[in-house]
Measured scan of single mutants.
Amino acid sequence: TTITITINGEELRIRGDHEEIHKILKAWEEDHNDEEIVRLIRELAER
C-alpha cells in the first residue's frame, strides 16, 4: 500500500503494510499533533 500525505507543504509518500498505514491514519483521526504524525511517517519512510 502506498499513500501520499502533504503536511505543512511537505509531501510524504509512505509505503507500508495495512497495519502500518492504519496506525498513521488512526493517529491522525485521534487528532494527534502534526509533529507526532510526521515522526510516524518518517519512521516508515526510512525503512
Results as ranks from 00 to 15, higher is better:
residue 41 I to C: 02
residue 19 E to D: 12
residue 41 I to P: 00
residue 25 L to W: 08
residue 1 T to R: 10
residue 24 I to V: 05
residue 4 T to F: 12
residue 37 I to S: 02
residue 19 E to H: 11
residue 45 A to V: 08
residue 40 L to A: 08
residue 11 E to P: 10
residue 13 R to E: 12
residue 7 I to V: 07
residue 19 E to L: 13
residue 42 R to G: 05
residue 34 D to N: 15
residue 27 A to N: 04
residue 11 E to T: 13
residue 33 N to M: 15
residue 31 D to P: 03
residue 35 E to C: 08
residue 34 D to C: 14
residue 10 E to V: 09
residue 17 D to S: 15
residue 5 I to H: 00
residue 17 D to T: 14
residue 5 I to C: 02
residue 9 G to S: 04
residue 40 L to H: 04
residue 8 N to G: 12
residue 43 E to D: 07
residue 5 I to V: 11
residue 22 H to L: 15
residue 25 L to H: 03
residue 23 K to L: 09
residue 13 R to I: 15
residue 37 I to D: 00
residue 39 R to Q: 10
residue 21 I to Q: 01
residue 28 W to L: 09
residue 10 E to G: 04
residue 40 L to Y: 06
residue 24 I to A: 03
residue 21 I to R: 01
residue 26 K to R: 11
residue 1 T to C: 07
residue 36 E to K: 06
residue 25 L to D: 00
residue 35 E to Q: 13
residue 28 W to G: 01
residue 3 I to Y: 08
residue 39 R to L: 09
residue 39 R to M: 07
residue 22 H to Q: 10
residue 7 I to D: 00
residue 15 R to S: 13
residue 32 H to Y: 12
residue 40 L to S: 03
residue 7 I to H: 03
residue 32 H to P: 15
residue 9 G to E: 04
residue 4 T to K: 12
residue 5 I to T: 01
residue 21 I to H: 01
residue 25 L to K: 06
residue 2 T to W: 15
residue 25 L to E: 02
residue 32 H to F: 09
residue 34 D to E: 10
residue 10 E to A: 07
residue 45 A to L: 13
residue 16 G to D: 05
residue 16 G to Y: 06
residue 43 E to K: 03
residue 29 E to L: 10
residue 37 I to G: 01
residue 14 I to N: 00
residue 30 E to P: 12
residue 17 D to C: 04
residue 4 T to P: 01
residue 36 E to F: 06
residue 35 E to W: 06
residue 41 I to R: 00
residue 11 E to S: 09
residue 21 I to A: 03
residue 12 L to R: 02
residue 19 E to Y: 11
residue 14 I to M: 04
residue 13 R to K: 13
residue 28 W to E: 00
residue 8 N to Y: 05
residue 25 L to R: 04
residue 26 K to I: 11
residue 13 R to Y: 06
residue 31 D to L: 11
residue 27 A to F: 08
residue 22 H to D: 13
residue 29 E to G: 07
residue 45 A to C: 14
residue 6 T to Q: 08
residue 25 L to C: 04
residue 11 E to D: 08
residue 11 E to W: 06
residue 29 E to C: 04
residue 25 L to M: 10
residue 19 E to T: 11
residue 44 L to R: 01
residue 41 I to Y: 02
residue 13 R to M: 15
residue 19 E to S: 09
